[in-house]
Write a protein that binds this DNA or RNA. Structure first.
Lengths: 280, 280
DNA sequence: TCGAAGCATATTTTGGAAATTAATGATATA
DNA sequence: TATATCATTAATTTCCAAAATATGCTTCGA
């Protein structure tokens, strides 16, 4: 029953290898589901339900939830279980500003210390992005684009030679990706990635020209423009504050409560369901 | 058997409340033991042994180890268990430089936005530090001093209004504390905290005077001087690289008193090394 | 005597059941 | 009819045993 490929070098920053343990596997699946908004912010993560959904025991499931809590993708509520971390405009703003600080520093160091293979990686990832169609809605194409997008941005700062800086930046990148995915689930925004390719090219050019000031400025502008769009959408839809409104995102896993008055599910949100006419 | 005080507001950043769950309790004990060097870098953390030592089941223990792995205080080696994270000069350097970046930004923001209660907190914590004797060796006095030291530095940046910045800074502060504690276990260094009080006062003065440039400079110098001392000691003793020299790492048992008679609270193991009689 | 393969053992990982806690519903009383 | 207390129920947390993996040791052969 347990058939896991043998390998080594287990780290918290592995990207492509096969999971070597069931806890690792369910961790990645849960993480992906949260990042892509299939498990919307505020969704209750009941162990029984998840155990059935992912066909897994309690132990690895609990370990996965524990790890996700450390990443602030899941919030643990004392002895009352886990929930997907809520999403507020403050989160978006804080994530934006903090990662600008971190990535600016990392980018400066990379520009100062980057070698040929670092340049090569940037060029390669930029090329991949230029060849991929910019997705306008969720799907496998969006996921591959996002993966290459992530690799491009991380390649920029990969030569900073700081493990902490890189780790924190990766963490915040994923947070921002969740913000983007969750928001795009409400409002289809192809314009989020409208001139993304052009911006990426400008950032890469300035970086490879070793123009740190320009590169940092362009990178900050790149992040800021996207985040501001998200903030605007979230505020318009009152996302995060009134969680019921995002409840319209149907998850494959937990949550088939169907927003009726029958509170068979939903142990925590027993409040009066404020109904507000809002188009989905 | 399970008697846990009831409370609320469980977060990853709680400081003083009682643990509400066994996993939380063992997490804190393990974390403290690692931070204070009672569990030295590289020490094997075998679940059987820990389960017996802390009188706890496997599940909460595993959860605690998982959380510590996310903090990079413990490294998980594939399917071969956990170890206390090793300690290298690169770790010390990276932690130093990264937290200078983070705390400088956070301090600037605090100085720009801090209110009266923020000033009050700084004054109070500085006063506490001035009244506490600077410890020259491990012990409860050292722990209380370190706790107030931590609170002082976190108070400085508490008004930055960035949860990520504060969280990352806290994480790195604890990392640096482990570096200091582990190193001081090898070489008694009262001089590490030699003019610490004076430096703290200067930092607080510049901060309260809203002189961001000076405050940042002083804070960086403060951290750098300590870290450089640690690096020197570590390099002289080849800590981390050649672990055998410190005699810290017994791959067999997580071993009893380490190096000195540090044993503050509890002996860690009564097991015979490796030659375990098989009883099945 | 050295090396490789197979066997035994130590240790981790996982699944399910028991215990504990929080939440819900009902009943009685004022 | 409203409120408080108690009982029931649901869900999480924890413990324990079995399965699986990796490691160490022994034995056999050259």
């Amino acid at each position: 029953m347990y058939r896991l490929s043998a390998a080594q070098s287990q780290s918290s920053e592995e990207t492509e290898d096969e999971p070597r343990t069931l806890a690792e596997a369910v961790y990645r699946r849960l993480r992906s589901d949260i990042l892509w908004g299939q498990l919307p912010p505020g969704a209750a993560l009941r162990s029984d339900q998840l155990r059935e959904t992912y066909s897994i025991g309690i132990s690895p499931l609990r370990e996965a939830l524990s790890r996700l809590t450390a990443e602030r993708l899941v919030t643990a509520i004392g002895q009352r279980g886990f929930r997907v971390a809520p999403l507020t405009v403050d989160d978006v703003r804080d994530t934006l500003e903090t990662r600008i600080v971190l990535e600016s520093e990392a980018l400066r160091r990379s520009i100062a210390a980057g070698d040929i293979s670092w340049e090569k990686s940037i060029i390669a990832n930029l090329h991949a992005l230029s060849r991929l169609p910019i997705p306008d809605r969720a799907g496998t194409a969006a996921e591959t684009w996002a993966r290459h997008h992530r690799e491009f941005h991380l390649a920029l700062i990969a030569a900073s030679r700081s493990r902490w800086l890189f780790e924190f930046a990766s963490l915040l990148f994923d947070q921002a990706e969740r913000h983007r995915a969750v928001t795009m689930r409400i409002v289809k925004m192809a314009n989020v990635a409208r001139d993304a390719l052009k911006e990426h090219k400008e950032i890469a050019d300035a970086t490879l020209a070793r123009d740190a000031a320009s590169a940092v400025k362009l990178l900050g502008r790149h992040y800021r423009s996207t985040a501001n769009l998200l903030i605007e959408v979230i505020e318009r839809n009152s996302l995060g504050i009134d969680r019921e409104k995002i409840g319209l995102v149907e998850t494959s896993a937990a949550q088939r409560g169907t927003a009726k008055k029958g509170r068979v599910t939903r142990p925590l949100s027993g409040k009066a369901p404020r109904r507000t006419p809002k188009r989905k």
